[in-house]
Design a protein around this nucleic acid. Structure first.
Lengths: 237, 237
DNA sequence: CCAATAGTGTCTATCAGACATTATCTA
DNA sequence: TAGATAATGTCTGATAGACACTATTGG
């Protein structure tokens, strides 16, 4: 038999296959704390519990995994998310009561004000501060996914400025440092933080603003490709 | 309707779901070059092409993804692989002619002599030097998976001693440095390489051996947890 | 002895930590 | 003016690069 005949006779759906979903841990930074977007499940299973935005692959609409997760995030937030990166996949016969399931998990970042409208207006959608997670009932293994994403972001905060995507397009260095400190969980040296970003020329000076009672801070925006820059030395732990 | 009734009535197989596979890029180091284990496909689709060890999830036998990939590797090599780590997932409606498919890809490492017997005896299984990949017809997107795994290993060579798993349990520092150099693609400073490993106390001195015409080199083995140690500073590019 | 390979001594360069100092805003 | 926040100056310490040197084996 040649391949064409094989494919003609092959019926994918006559074999059992795990359920496949994509899920995204979408983080932002607001009110001096990191928050993740959660959605209260309207349907079984795990109805009423809070879950990450995500869901089944649509074999017609989605051409690949990245498209699928972008679609899910767009459906839930109504905006294009500037930073999405694959995190890891989780699959077992236990994580979903419907049977063997796999989720391809993503980490995503967005500025709060670019994404607040929908979440603030709909009662089943919330920006949840990370400290409040333990009190909330999360669906499936989504708490684990969030912790995994958080840990990866913490690492990135040590050697990149990826966390800048939690801020508006124009942001100050003190603001960026705050996000990094929140992720790393300890204060950083102002001088070290600025020095490495300056030397690597990752940001573009705009005009200054942002006065909060003291000297106004310079507003910057990221250079194209700045998020792909990895420092050779980590900030210390 | 409550969740129990929902689950009783739910038939997972009445919905179409992508094909789900796991695949592993299993690397080793032999004859001064990096090699990856490939298997010639006996069945459609892509019959005759070379592919990574892997295949469909077995919903009965496999309790989770890690178990599935370990099973696949055991079936192909007959040995327990000491280093397996999830790499990334690849999914689209194009990568497999049978339809929408997702593979969860893994990177794995093994010492050549711990894994040579089967590969040398069976004609459809080969350790392929990485330089020879472009000449070989690879199935699906497996060439891309290998390149992706290789790039991740290259990064790890800059800040960890994970590549030590390509060597036998007892190995010399010059041998380890060779592997790192092969991955990074440029020579390293002997002194820098040794110094950081010594200072972090990642290896245990055994007794010396390995004479290759000159002064015999000390044989070491990894301390437990040594592969999880990440240096704060990368080797430079 | 020499050739070959392993391993060390040591100087320099880079860059993060620490922290004091200066700058620029509002009230 | 004081208070607050932003930004800089500058010293120290850790560690990678460079490369010459010593050590240990076999002929």
């Amino acid at each position: 038999m040649n391949e064409r005949d094989f494919l003609r006779d092959y019926d994918k759906n006559s074999y059992s296959s795990p359920l496949v979903t994509v899920d995204a841990a979408l983080f932002t930074y607001q009110d001096e704390c990191l928050k993740v977007l959660l959605i209260q499940r309207a349907n079984h299973p795990e109805r009423g519990k809070w879950a990450l935005p995500g869901g089944f692959i649509d074999e017609q609409a989605d051409t690949d995994l990245d498209v699928a997760v972008q679609r899910k995030l767009y459906e839930k937030t109504g905006v294009r998310i500037p930073y999405i990166e694959q995190l890891a996949s989780f699959g077992s016969n236990k994580r979903d009561k419907r049977g063997w399931s796999v989720t391809i998990a993503y980490t995503a970042l967005v500025a709060y004000q670019d994404c607040s409208a929908l979440a603030e207006s709909v009662s089943d959608t919330r920006w949840v501060p990370l400290q409040e997670l333990p009190q909330l009932k999360l669906a499936f293994d989504h708490e684990q996914l969030i912790l995994c994403a958080r840990e990866r972001l913490r690492q990135k905060a040590l050697y990149s400025i990826v966390p800048a995507y939690t801020l508006p397009e124009h942001f100050t260095l003190p603001a960026l440092q705050q996000v990094h400190e929140a992720l790393i969980g300890k204060p950083l040296q102002k001088k070290s933080f600025r020095r490495r970003i300056e030397q690597a020329e990752l940001l573009i000076d705009t005009g200054k603003k942002r006065a909060e009672g003291g000297r106004p801070a310079t507003l910057y925006r990221m250079k194209p490709g700045a998020a792909e820059h990895f420092f050779l030395r980590n900030l210390e732990l």
